[in-house]
């Protein structure tokens, strides 16, 4: 049974059928098989958050899920959120506030930040910090990232002119 297992899922709205080995994790499946390399692989044991994706609308660590486990699921990656424009304002806020340097953590940060803003339109800085606490950044020191998320949240809740 270490032979490939067939799976069927959607990734960013597109139907995907594949044969995968049980040991293949979702992050590697997205990167190596589907060439969606926006999902980053950092620690490979669930600590750094760089591989955060959405499964069924909820954020998860894609390094801690097997590709065989997402059979029948709907996956959204940073490419999906970026292309749809869902996080265009967050991306702009990150850029404006210099909330990234090397950019390695940024896809995971954006996934986690958007997850927060969908649940809580007006998070406090403490709530932002808490929601991003599972995502490591080794360059910026987090303050700029929290500023950027706060700015994006404020802009979203401002009454439209």
């Amino acid at each position: 049974m270490t032979t490939p297992v067939s799976i069927s899922l959607t990734v960013n709205g597109e139907r995907v059928e594949a044969h995968v080995l049980p040991r293949l994790n979702l992050a590697d499946f997205l990167r190596e098989h589907l060439k969606l390399t926006g999902t980053h692989v950092g620690c490979e044991h669930g600590v750094c958050g760089a591989c955060t994706v959405r499964v069924g609308g909820e954020i998860v660590r894609s390094c801690l899920m097997l590709a065989v486990q997402v059979n029948g699921a709907a996956i959204e990656t940073i490419e999906g959120l970026s292309d749809s424009g869902e996080i265009a304002d967050l991306q702009a806020a990150f850029r404006d506030r210099n909330a990234l340097q090397c950019g390695f953590c940024t896809p995971g940060m954006l996934m986690a930040a958007q997850d927060l803003l969908r649940e809580n339109g007006k998070p406090t800085r403490e709530e932002i910090r808490e929601h991003l606490s599972g995502n490591y950044c080794r360059c910026t020191g987090y303050h700029a990232i929290i500023d950027a998320v706060e700015n994006a949240a404020l802009a979203r809740t401002e009454p439209q002119a």
Partner: peptide, 9 residues
């Protein structure tokens, strides 16, 4: 217990 993405699984 851990972080949101972990608590979802």
């Amino acid at each position: 217990v851990a972080h949101p993405a972990i608590r979802n699984r």
